[in-house]
Design a protein around this nucleic acid. Structure first.
Lengths: 253, 253
DNA sequence: CAGTGGTCTAGACCACAAG
DNA sequence: TTGTGGTCTAGACCACTGG
């Protein structure tokens, strides 16, 4: 016998299933160390690459994560709730609260880790949504948010330079209530939002920036802010660690 | 030399990057066949497992998909837009329209593939959200939706048996406007909804039911319907092929 | 230091798909 | 029938982690 298990069960799949069952039964809890490659080789009498492939199943399903030199561990999840609609209520930012305060949770504060503001030519993808002419410029605010040192979210916000350049929006500290409060002061306060949500596996760059362990997808939220007149004044593209977030939308029938 | 690339670049990573670059440059378009394991072995002078690992990177990122006996191909995506809020407007189901009609797109119709209705003891997870006492029963409607033969969505809906048993809700065909119209006729029409969205890699069962290629996450939407009095009358748990969907939420500031 | 996972090689047989 | 990817073996050196 080499391949072809006859039993209709692949070796690595059998091992993976056994490990999953042991986790489901509580034999291994979050953070616990699983049997390593060497141990699986002995107990199941398989080659290294087979034991490895079994553990690979758990990793690619996001159930386990490997730490080099240490072992393979059951992953721990700490979900963060993001209230999609309440967080953007006019009352909030008009009163000087940050939109991000809605994500506050005791002991797990959301903190800006890095922030850059620059002005650049608007990308093709945004010219249409922002209703700009090609070649015009945009103010771009890039931020990374961390919780307990762990990065969980990247946000890149685009605004027409014709609106934002020279205002507090183009400053690192955009002031109380953030850019929405500033836009309102300029007579372009957002009245309506659209959030588009997609989900996929991360690029290697995203995995690095968010320090994602393999088997963790990213959630992409693209939010467009519109004035009451229907003009798009901001496009905010966010990239979230999917294992850190649960998104919530409340609305009426 | 065996491992340890000196160059700071792993072999498989170098190959994977080259393939990604070729795809990004348009050299390989959606549906095109990529160089296979054998070809990579020759052009990069590596062992089979190394070429394989390189292709594994693209697969796990959802960029490519392998077809046994045929080759490795650049994946094609066909996104479907799901309007989270408009689809549930009372006007719609009160007028006899199905909630799912909102997902209509020319030539890519959403069709129910399989449907079962059963009554069972309510699961622990739902007793609280539905405000039921432990041990009480629920009507459970399970459906699978396909687009052009391809399954894209699983939906499992739970309703208190005390409300739904013996009504059209417990029938396979719940009638015009669906279960929300029926609930309204019973004096428990939904007035408010909450959708919770999570994203993760699929279980093997989910991957099989949705025929997911590896590197494709699933989106979990858990929708709870509340009456005007605040009573939860339905919990609907949906599992979506993430590569088939873009979720949209429109709302006011 | 011993043990871990990460990478790599050089073979092998199999099931499947396409020409 | 030929070539493909899927699985498997039995070795190897490396970087990293932990005690």
């Amino acid at each position: 016998m080499t391949a072809a298990q006859g039993e209709g069960q692949l070796k690595y799949q059998r091992i993976a299933d056994a490990l999953k069952a042991a986790i489901a039964s509580g034999e291994y809890g979050p953070g616990d160390r699983l049997p390593g490659e060497n141990e699986l080789m002995v107990t199941y009498q398989v080659a290294r690459m087979t034991a490895r492939q079994a553990l690979g199943v758990l990793r690619s399903e996001g159930i386990a994560e490997a730490r080099k030199g240490a072992g393979v561990f059951v992953r721990t999840f700490q979900l963060r709730r993001r209230r999609g609609i309440q967080r953007l209520a006019r009352d909030r930012w008009a009163a000087g609260h940050s939109v991000w305060d809605a994500d506050l949770e005791a002991g797990h504060e959301l903190v800006v880790d890095s922030l850059t503001v620059r002005e650049e030519a608007v990308s093709d993808r945004h010219t249409q949504t922002l209703g700009l002419s090609p070649g015009s410029r945009a103010v771009v605010r890039t931020r990374r948010f961390v919780v307990n040192e762990k990065p969980v979210l990247l946000a890149v916000s685009h605004l027409p330079a014709s609106l934002a350049a020279g205002t507090a929006i183009a400053e690192e500290d955009s002031g109380p209530g953030g850019i929405y409060a500033r836009l309102a002061e300029l007579g372009h306060g957002p009245a309506r939002f659209r959030e588009e949500i997609r989900c996929r596996m991360p690029t290697t760059a995203e995995a690095r920036q968010l320090r994602l362990s393999s088997g963790t997808p990213v959630v992409l939220i693209c939010r467009t802010a519109y004035t009451a007149e229907g003009r798009a004044v901001e496009v905010n593209e966010m990239t979230l660690d999917a294992s850190s977030y649960i998104l919530e939308y409340d609305f009426n029938a």
